[in-house]
Design a protein around this nucleic acid. Sequence first.
DNA 1: CTTCGCAAGCCA
DNA 2: GGCTTGCGAAGA
Length: 804
Amino acid sequence: MFAEVIVDVAAYPIDRPFDYAVPEKFQTIIESGSRVKVPFGNRQVLGFVTAIKSETDVPVEKQKPVGELLDIEPVLTQEMLEMTKWLRRHTLCYEIDALQVMLPSALRAKYEKILEIVDHNFELPQSIQAMFQQKDRVELKVDESKELLTTIKKLIKENILALETVVKQKTAVKKVRMILIESDVKKLQEIHLNISNQAKKQKDVVKWMMNYAGTRIVSTDLLKRLNTSNAVLQAVMEKGAATLELEEVYRDPYADRTINVSAKHSLTNEQHLALSEIIFSYDKHEAKTFLLHGITGSGKTEVYLQAIERALHDQKEAIVLVPEISLTPQMTNRFKERFGSLVAVLHSGLSTGEKYDEWRKIKRGEVKVVVGARSAVFAPFQNIGLIILDEEHEGTYKQDDSPRYHARDVAIWRSEYHHCPVILGSATPSLESYARAKKGNYSLLTLTKRPRDQALPEVSVIDMREQLKNGNRSMFSLELAESIRRRLDKQEQMVLFLNRRGHSSFVLCRDCGTVVECPNCDISMTYHRHQERIKCHYCGEESQVPNICPECKSDHIRFFGTGTQKVEEEIARLFPTARVLRMDVDTTRKKGSHEHILKLFGDGKADILLGTQMIAKGLDFPNITLVGVLSADTTLHLADFRAAEKTFQLLTQVSGRAGRHDKEGQVIVQTYTPEHYAIQFAKHHDFVPFYNQEMVNRKQFAYPPYTFVAFIQITHEDVLMTAEYAHKTANWLRENLSNSTEIIGPTASSISRVQNRYRYQCLIKYKKEPTLPEVLQQLTRIYRTDWMKKGILMSIDLNPSSIM
DNA sequence: CTTCGCAAGCCA
DNA sequence: GGCTTGCGAAGA
């Protein structure tokens, strides 16, 4: 018996199954989908069994046995193994990457290097002895000094020390110590009698136990209750009054939260219609994709909830994907409220162990609904009735490193496997999805009204050029400043949005015009006033703020451009009474800080929530009556064909934060290009006309949805090398792809250097290219066998979410 | 002739 | 990807 194993080594020649002999003892339990430890080369690695077979072509002398079977129950289902193959072809990743992405990180291997003393007679050098500290085996850390490593190497050669790689699981199943009290009271009485009167505490414990004969109690609880020590308990147990048992438990991330159960809301006609279409297709076991296009606040969530209720009723499971779970606590809570303990929330704030526990609950079918970000699409359910992607247009559904999958594609693949519907929900669908819906590939459902018929907020677009002409050089237009003042007077809340963090976007010398740039990247450094430092937002480089110009030594250093920090200061100056909460990458670095800030704001502890795009999603507070967009232009002029689409989506989403409840909302958008169609259509909340206009542009320039796009980026430390291989790539593509396919480039990327690597890119635009995965696979092969050695890095992104 | 450093080759 | 091996260069 042999097992085909994909080993945990991401390298080109290893990206295929290796056959291992299955030892007798594992033959009845090993299955495809199990994890194994196998010898590979001269070390131990983790691997996944992908098939079991009785014969192999591998010559006997090369055959090696499976070292250890890590799972009695396979961790990967048959579905996941099939999905792996598809994922690999469509994202051009290593098979091992595709396998690992489906599992919680706790199930990935942790490799430890253990150094062992073999020859105890040898007098070890002082430095080595210090490392061992009387022990025989110690973990060898990677960051040991060079000299130490060379001595260790020598000693290994002389067989005095031995090095061994050990495969460990990252997180173990959490176990709790349970005390099993003896059930025979007579026996307890006997033990009680035999304890000497000196051991008073032991006597007390056993006396107490007589009242609880045969019961189980958590060890720590018992100790606390009897106010006694572990030593006493141990002594009592040795005398036979109780036994110890380890019980598996789940870490409960929501232990200290109370949840109020909510009833279902009644539906509007539109909601009802949408729901019944979904249910109709669900009943027929159709793998149909619905695009639920509903304006902000139109009650998409309620449709999801009731559709899920239906699936649960049939003992089926549901997956709900949200763009960024820590930003949508309100949405998550609604699921918790409706389905209680049947919901598992896969939260980025959970520890590895907590995530693993939630995963096991899903696998064992102890929960039926999963709410989570992108990776939750791989939830190990076996009987899925419904998959939902909320805010389907969001870029976070696309993973930006290998495997570069889009959660929407995985969701649709799984829906075909499980014969169940998928709902893509959004107020501002992506052009691709809307086009597919219009073509009939997806089925379009529309919600045009808010449940209690609240009006959409009034959006005013302020031309900042006019403000400048009239002598207002502030970042707040007169209208916005006036509106903020009014809200402060009325004690209503507002949200201010600016898509740039930090204080000033660049540091400029007024004498020679030098802009301080990052030494590693081709981008200007951003000034952060709180730490009085300048930072690169691409590589994280930080340094002191220069007092004099690095070029001309002038001291006329000035800060230009506006970031959230500067806005915060400006608010403090103009509205000294306003209480401001700032929410951006800098204030939310710690776990749980998103929730904390949102909670403070929800509790009315601040008047103004100021933030970057992370506040655009999901906020739903009744008291918000003003939304201000300080500069709508930042996303509009990006070198990306989706710039207009992203601007429109952002403005619409942000506007949707105002006036969701009884109070009327107002939105003020400041811009230097008020005439731009993305801004004009967003002003009128007009998705369809925007779509039509944008489609005209996409057609003219042959961009998606009219074509498909693949994006290839080449980087190297040397500009010439980068350019050379980018040209090689483009030429190779031109030779191997059909004439109707357009290859743009190579061109230098818009940020031409990041972390000291120059960047060039090629864009492939195609309508029909059935062999593209294979052609790109071949290109990857050339790259991995040849170019990689020269220090070239190439990445291929099929259907990229951004081309920058 | 030994030792060091690095590129090449292999892994069942 | 990580480990061994084999080769050439540097040093005694």
